[in-house]
Design a protein around this nucleic acid. Structure first.
Lengths: 204, 204
DNA sequence: GTCTATAAACGGATAGAC
DNA sequence: GTCTATCCGTTTATAGAC
């Protein structure tokens, strides 16, 4: 994983370095082995501590997953949603959302996207919170597409299906093109922007 | 999950009904909770047996995952690759591969696609076998795109990136549009075909 | 082919000392 | 803030009876 963010997007009270290291390492392990496949023993060893020591930093394994997912959504809102919501032209807004989303994956080592299906291991109330935040993000894609449709620039397609397809291509980058190896970051971002806009825009 | 296949694509020696039920149920549980999140106790209960009884049908939990993934690839080869490899026109071949792939998802209740990331829980030799079969399938997408490029029909794009994007949109269907609810099967198949072909074809 | 019983290890989490 | 020690439920898997 890459270094954590500068702005205080982590759920930890104060930016204690050790604290962040625990969450960062946990996220990395869970991306590799899944939530259920990662034991507190694994985490303790990876971070150079005993299991008991961990519990000074976290409340429970489940709570930790929740906070990791909350963190990922904080980053998304701060680095994708906020910088693009002022863009008037829906095509440019979409292009930039996708581009920034892909770049965020690399910047934060955010195979974190791969952890979202793991929200099934949370209790329903926490599951619901994550689900709503993801759905709100997807809603922004749908809104941009609706605006494109009004301008007659959208192909004939189901907007809900297209929105999920777009998100899938982005999430898949972490699976198929893990950081560093293979295609370069900038190329990957542009390829993904173009792939998806070609898929939904008329003519183009 | 839906009923298992008629042709003998399962790894079980003879088509014993009970045997298949174990694998079918295991696949269903693992899709919902993940491999590590599914215990043999869960499986035993779901299939109406004791844990010990299960081991008459399977060698180990890991081996069972391996055979489920092998089964999924058997279906893919039998119902997607084989019926399309004779198609001369690369565009039509691609269209039909994607269409059949989506339809296979529904026909076999194949959220099975969602199990492929779980191959990380296999031992390296078995992991490698699954990886090669998936890569061979992806290679067919790449080949069709290369042929399209020769005919001047392909957009300027990275074929490797595009291939992974196509697979991701298909795999995502199981996640975003689980069986029955929401969009209908035929619509979903056509939407996915059109989305991806619009993404890669010139003009169109 | 399915059961009871059990082994042997591992899981998350806590108590209390330092 | 981290440790040792420990609780106790769960895990995969096997032995052996029926």
């Amino acid at each position: 994983m890459n270094p954590m963010p500068q702005p205080n997007l982590m759920p930890t009270p104060e930016g204690q370095a050790r604290n962040e290291e625990v969450f960062r390492t946990a996220a990395s392990l869970m991306v590799q082995r899944g939530y259920a496949g990662t034991s507190m023993g694994d985490l303790a060893e990876a971070v150079g501590m005993t299991k008991a020591g961990l519990y000074h930093h976290i409340k429970s394994k489940q709570e930790m997953l929740f906070e990791i997912l909350q963190f990922a959504m904080n980053v998304m809102e701060h680095e994708v949603i906020e910088p693009t919501r002022g863009i008037a032209d829906p095509e440019q807004r979409l292009r930039n959302m996708i581009r920034l989303h892909v770049r965020v994956l690399f910047k934060h080592g955010l195979e974190l996207t791969l952890l979202f299906p793991e929200r099934r291991h949370l209790e329903p109330p926490q599951q619901e919170i994550i689900w709503q935040r993801v759905d709100r993000y997807q809603g922004l894609l749908r809104t941009s597409m609706r605006e494109l449709a009004e301008q007659g620039k959208l192909r004939e397609l189901d907007i809900n299906v297209a929105a999920s397809h777009i998100l899938q291509t982005i999430a898949g980058i972490a699976r198929w093109h893990p950081q560093g190896r293979g295609v370069a970051e900038a190329l990957l971002a542009e390829q993904t922007v173009n792939f998806n806009l070609s898929a939904i825009l008329k003519d183009s």
